[in-house]
Amino acid sequence: MQAATSHSIAYQGEFSDPVRGAQSVFRAVMDATARPGSIHQLADLCTPPAPLTASAAAIIATLADAETPVWLDSALARSEAVRDWIVFHTGAPVTVHQDEASFALVAAPQSLAALNGFSLGTQEYPDRSTTLILQVSDLTKGAALVLEGPGVNGTASIAPSPMPLHFAAQWRDNRAGFPRGVDLILAGPGCVAALPRTTRLAQREA
């Protein structure tokens, strides 16, 4: 019975209109990436099995396919239903190797200890890197990050939560390897923001 339930969940919960849903979610992710710190509503969502969230599911359904291996953190990998849902709706292979992943789905960002375990691309092909989709519960009520860099007019601010352990130090290391590095998509409830590798965290005043 368990398997039957899992499978019936896997076949449901896609965009109600896949073409339109993917376009609107992509535009939100594109605008978020072009303007780090800006928060964009997702007009179309998916209804995946927990602990995959509606926002993260919409984003992975928009971007992943058979050409893009997806890595799942342990909270997601434990769920057979989540794995089935991703495979059924995107065709993407699920990989256990972080450095082979085009996308990484992370349900528990606070447990993410090392961004540099993912693919950072190469100096000649920095685009061959992992894009992490972090499921966050909030984009405005966590610890404030002050952002600078391309796409930001002066400074911008965002306060996602939860975020990876020692995030400021990890992000500084990621920035230092430019043009290599990972990019982050922050999937909040019904909304999205992004931190591309170019974004710098401004020094907070003590």
Binding site: A22, L63, A64, D127, G151, P196, T198
Partner: peptide, 23 residues
């Protein structure tokens, strides 16, 4: 849709690495 998805991924990489030519 598959072609759009591939182009969309390239656009996101392009924005993340300004001026770099994404194949």
């Amino acid at each position: 849709e598959q072609t759009k998805r591939m182009i969309r991924r390239a656009i996101l990489k392009g924005i993340a690495i300004p001026g770099y030519q994404v194949p």
